[in-house]
Design a protein around this nucleic acid. Structure first.
Length: 462
RNA sequence: UCCAGAGUAGCUCAAUGGUAGAGCAAUCGGCUGUUAACCGAUCGGUUGUUGGUUCAAGUCCAACCUCUGGAGCCA
């Protein structure tokens, strides 16, 4: 049998082919008197390939009725220029075969479905136009992440998914245990985790940062890119219980450079997707978010605004806007404040830096003013915070004080403090939510629609 | 977790407290190098669940379930 040609390849052909083999899933069939039009898609491209199946082919009468939307078929034929208007190439079948039938209960129709309905059939939604586009772009975006860092001599570190320290300091964690909840081993009336698999309480990671710092402090520039988990009961369009995060960590790097890298990174990803996923991006621009391409281009064409937290508060206080939550020095920026800054005031991504130390975690580097830390957040229109980072505290005594203030034990962080004892250097890094970036790039407004099988509170189907 | 909204045919949606309807899909037929094809017919319902008010409930009330949006937590 001749080799399979992917639909994407066939559609991009330079010249006709006398013999070609195509396999994929039927999107639609239209019957004429003497032949049928069948549109086939194999996921490699948004566009379908049109197949002409002549009624004189053997088994036409018995087999063509099985060629329904959703069925898998194999076609042998000639790749030729189409007589029709909407496609360049089409295949005149010389033989066709139904590989897998789809009966009338196949839920995907030729017409549009609601995103809510498609979420209920997450196992079939990648066969729709929208989700085909989403997951092709997701794949390319992951590739671009690696390309960005690998091209800059960053080393990819696989930080652990199971961690034994509950002190990563970023919210509720999922416990990992082999203890039978019906009859747990007890010690003084409490569950005895000393008898658990890891002989101590262990969890799914909420961040690879602390481990990445270890490697930055020996291999200079590193990054992690992997799944992270939050057991928060968050029910929003921007939160999932399992999501992917990218966390670069750079030795001999201060906050300024950290912000520079973050901005360059965001722009690199946008540029890569616009260049390599043109058809998919056109689809998003047309059906998901009309202003998408213009907005992304706008982001590419100019520097991000940079304001200190104090300046941001001034802007908000002088905005004349009424906010639901109070604006004041020392208070956290709420969603509505971030949105105002990036969507109304600057109308472009904004990097806010030097936050009050009281609202930030212990590992961020204290500034000389005694009040703020060298933290930064990149805020983008429509999503809010897409990058959060900081310069890390490299001074042992200061870090120990921070631990005390946050009521964390020095023993738990012994290995982390060691980094400050032996050849400590200024270093910085940030985290980017992969799905949030994907939402920003595609215009898809719900995180559940950019993850193959989303995990959210009360929902782990599939 | 809090606030708001929504659950009616496989899908998307109608229906003043008074006989549950349309488009699409499916099925059958017709027409056509068609392309979200077109034309005709057929099929399709315990109106999320339970209880209540009423002569009468898809519609009003209560509780619960599910989904959606917003908020908080955060990436």
């Amino acid at each position: 049998m001749i080799r399979r040609t992917l639909v994407k390849k066939a559609l991009n052909a330079k010249e006709p082919e006398d013999e070609i083999r195509i396999e994929g899933w039927v999107r639609t069939r239209r019957d004429a008197k003497a032949f049928s039009f069948v549109e086939i898609n194999d996921g490699t491209s948004l566009a379908n390939l049109q197949i002409i199946i002549d009624a004189t082919l053997s088994d036409y009468e018995t087999e063509i009725v099985k060629v329904t939307t959703g069925a898998a078929i194999r076609v042998h034929g000639k790749l030729t220029l189409s007589q029709g208007k909407n496609q360049g190439w089409e295949v005149i079948a010389t033989a066709f075969e139904v590989i897998g039938q789809a009966d009338a209960s196949y839920p995907l129709q030729k017409k549009g479905h609601s995103l809510e309905f498609l979420r209920e059939i997450a196992h079939l939604r990648p066969r729709s136009n929208l989700f085909g586009c989403v997951f092709r772009v997701r794949s390319r975006l992951a590739h671009a992440v690696h390309q960005f860092f690998q091209g800059r001599d960053f080393i990819y570190i696989h930080t652990p998914i199971i961690t034994a320290s509950d002190c990563e300091g970023a919210g509720e964690m999922f416990k990992v245990t082999t203890i039978d909840p019906a009859k747990p081993p007890l010690k003084d009336g409490q569950v005895d985790y000393g008898k658990d698999f890891f002989e101590k309480p262990s969890y799914l990671t909420v961040s690879g940062q602390l481990a990445a710092e270890v490697f930055a402090c020996s291999m200079s520039n590193v990054y992690t890119f992997g799944p992270t988990f939050r057991a928060e009961n968050s029910n929003t369009t921007r939160h999932a219980s399992e999501f992917w995060m990218i966390e670069p960590e750079m030795a001999f790097c201060d906050l300024q450079e950290d912000m520079d890298v973050a901005e360059t990174f965001v722009k690199y990803l946008i540029d890569d997707i616009l260049k390599h996923c043109a058809a998919d991006m056109t689809f998003f621009s047309k059906f998901v978010d009309k202003g998408l391409k213009d907005r992304l281009q706008w982001v590419l064409d100019r520097p991000f605004e940079r304001v200190s937290y104090a300046e941001a508060i001034d802007i908000l206080l002088q905005s004349g806007q009424t906010f639901e939550y109070p604006v004041d020095y020392g208070l956290n920026l709420q969603s509505e404040h971030e949105r105002y800054l990036t969507e109304k005031h600057f109308k472009c991504p904004v990097t806010v830096y030097n936050y009050p130390k009281t609202i930030k975690p212990f590992y961020m580097r204290a500034n000389d003013d005694g009040k703020t830390v060298a933290a930064m957040d990149v805020l983008v229109p429509g999503i809010g915070e897409i990058v959060g980072g900081s310069q890390r505290e490299e001074r042992l005594e200061v870090l120990e004080k921070h631990l005390e203030h946050h009521e964390l034990s020095k023993e738990d962080y012994g290995w982390y403090l060691d980094l400050r004892r032996f050849g400590s250097v200024p270093h910085s890094g940030f985290g980017m939510g992969f799905e949030r970036m994907l939402m920003f790039v595609t215009g898809v407004s719900n995180i559940r629609d950019v993850i193959p099988f989303a995990r959210t509170p009360g929902n782990a189907e599939f």
